[in-house]
Design a protein around this nucleic acid. Sequence first.
DNA 1: ACATAATATCATTGATTTATGTTATGTCAA
DNA 2: TTGACATAACATAAATCAATGATATTATGT
Lengths: 115, 115
Amino acid sequence: MHTRKAPIEPRDRLADTLYAKFFSGLADETRLRIVRYLLEGPHTAGEIVTELGMSQSRISNQLSCLKWCGYVYAERHGRNVMYRIASPAIGELLSTAQRLVAANACAIAECTQLA
Amino acid sequence: MHTRKAPIEPRDRLADTLYAKFFSGLADETRLRIVRYLLEGPHTAGEIVTELGMSQSRISNQLSCLKWCGYVYAERHGRNVMYRIASPAIGELLSTAQRLVAANACAIAECTQLA
DNA sequence: ACATAATATCATTGATTTATGTTATGTCAA
DNA sequence: TTGACATAACATAAATCAATGATATTATGT
């Protein structure tokens, strides 16, 4: 028999560190806004700055953070840099989250505990 | 025609705040370890304490945090409290993340930028 | 070659949040 | 009363975000 296709890797702390870091990419309102904006289609850095109304420096930093984590990638077009979502799996991630959040929005909003 | 089933909600800042909060539930190594442990099956609070080797208080706090965000739910059994993953969608979330992280592990590990 | 637009990067600072430790107490249920 | 857990009250250290502003990079227009 073949080994069964595991839906989830065996636990190990190294991986957990990595995943935590990965998820922290989305654990910030600004970055989430960028990601959701890009889910509507590619945009240049400048467009993102305008859309979110934040400083160029701030957006640029968050973009490079999203790049590190593999959420987006960048392509130079002339003097502009076009950003796009790196994989359709990111849309899935968000829509799965939506279902979970929808079932629980009030609890999350009210959460005063740690985290 | 029916309205097309939207895979992603229209952007709005309130939702972004909520999602960011939701994702921050997984943006912590300890909580991730708990979630992954529970993906293997339900466990009592005490078992989790033992498995992770952390203080009861610390685990309990993180558990209630995970409860707020809707990742797990708790059921009393005698003097024990049994925790289980709240929805299979959480497994999906993790396995989608796995694919994304796998494609990018080194970059994430090396990330020194903000976030 | 030079000026400039678009973007990235860097340093500094400060505010805020978060995680954690510790310790104590409260609550159920056996 | 004790075992299993939750909750609270601090204190503290560390991480994170952001504001600001300077500088670097790259491409374009002149």
